[in-house]
């Protein structure tokens, strides 16, 4: 595994990190822009996790935000009620959420395509109802406010301002580095094989069940870390932050950018995450815009913005050699028109 981790530190990734840090520093003067950037970074992290499930493995999991919610409420509960440090609470909550994520991924062993997506929608709905129902833990529809930001261990101060922004930037970058490593590891290849043809994957010795469970575990880690960071960054957690629409928004970022490509979800998150902030008081317009984009992606651009661009550029011979190193493809979920 170390071999693949080392391969994760590529010049492109370091450039990405430098760009993200530079951006965080540049916008730090304006709290509003800095906040938008912070949320965008969390969105990148989430999109990277969703991409592992939807893009690489071909499982449309609409319970993604619910898993993030479990981790968020878990972290907040441990910090605010039990007085734990964020850095102790977060891993515990994330691990818990990942275990739940694996359990909720179990239907994928029997159900394919639409039926799995539907079962994940049902699970997301149940989780949403649970967030509202267990008022003792979640404060119901009202939500939990005044959530403290993560502490900086042993100093007695907390992350705030540019420090928190940089923390989010680093977390987003780390998630991308991990995705890069996975995409270039045998594990990543197995996931693509499962996406393309489960029966054939088994026939060439790939343990479909084990790898699906693994990808649900890893994907839920992304969801969970994002959830814990989101709640502490915004300082507020309510069932609405982790509902079906949130899952769909994350799916849209991945699909809009390009499923199964490394950079696609980053592009999708960068473009779409700031949209609600630009709309301000016309907040409900966000639903309409996202809905229209979902339709546009499915109908007009199954490969997504980046995926379509990549396919176009690949035809240019001069860039072919460089790009042939990048792997990717469009997932087998029927949204691809075949000839």
């Amino acid at each position: 595994m170390r071999r693949y981790l080392r391969s994760a530190i590529t010049p492109q990734l370091l450039l990405l990190l430098a760009a993200a840090i530079a951006l965080a520093v540049v916008v730090s003067g304006n709290r509003f822009f800095a906040f938008v950037l912070g949320i965008t970074m969390i969105s990148i992290l989430w999109a990277a996790g969703m991409n592992l499930l939807t893009g690489y493995t071909g499982l449309v999991s609409l319970a993604f935000a619910g898993i993030a919610g479990i981790s968020a409420y878990g972290t907040v509960g441990l910090v605010m009620r039990c007085g734990w440090s964020f850095w102790l609470a977060m891993p515990v909550a994330v691990l818990g959420a990942a275990v739940v994520g694996v359990l909720l991924g179990l239907p994928s062993l029997r159900l394919k395509g639409f039926y799995f997506a539907l079962s994940s929608l049902v699970i997301q709905t149940v989780l949403s109802l649970g967030f509202v129902y267990f008022i003792g833990l979640t404060n119901g529809d009202t939500g939990i406010s005044q959530i403290p930001p993560p502490d900086i261990p042993l100093t007695g101060v907390s992350f705030h301002g540019i420090g928190f922004d940089l923390l989010l930037t680093f977390a987003a970058w780390l998630s991308l580095a991990a995705t890069w490593a996975i995409a270039h590891s045998p594990f990543g290849r197995r996931l693509v094989a499962i996406r393309e043809d489960e029966v054939l994957a088994e026939a060439i010795g790939i343990d479909v069940i084990r790898n699906k469970m693994l990808v649900f575990f890893v994907g839920s880690l992304y969801a969970g870390v994002g959830g814990a960071l989101y709640a502490t960054y915004v300082g507020f957690a309510s069932p609405r932050s982790f509902d079906l629409l949130s899952s769909l928004s994350i799916w849209l970022m991945v699909a809009f950018g390009g499923r199964g490509t490394f950079m696609g979800p980053v592009v999708g998150a960068l473009i779409l995450a700031p949209v609600p902030f630009m709309l301000q008081q016309y907040d409900t317009l966000k639903d309409v815009i996202y809905g229209a984009l979902i339709i546009a992606v499915i109908v007009l651009m199954p490969g997504g913005v980046y995926g379509t661009l990549l396919a176009y550029v690949r035809r240019l011979p001069s860039l072919k050699r460089y790009l042939s190193k990048q792997r990717g493809g469009v997932p087998n979920d029927g949204s691809v028109r075949r000839s």
Partner: peptide
């Protein structure tokens, strides 16, 4: 099935089955 394959018993399918959208190289590497 995957354990049978790992034990050294491979099989092909009546209707040819390959990863149609991946390159030949990717098929072989998988």
């Amino acid at each position: 099935p995957h354990k049978v394959a790992r034990a050294g018993l491979a099989r092909t399918f009546q209707a040819v089955r390959i990863f149609a959208r991946l390159s030949v190289r990717d098929n072989l590497q998988t």
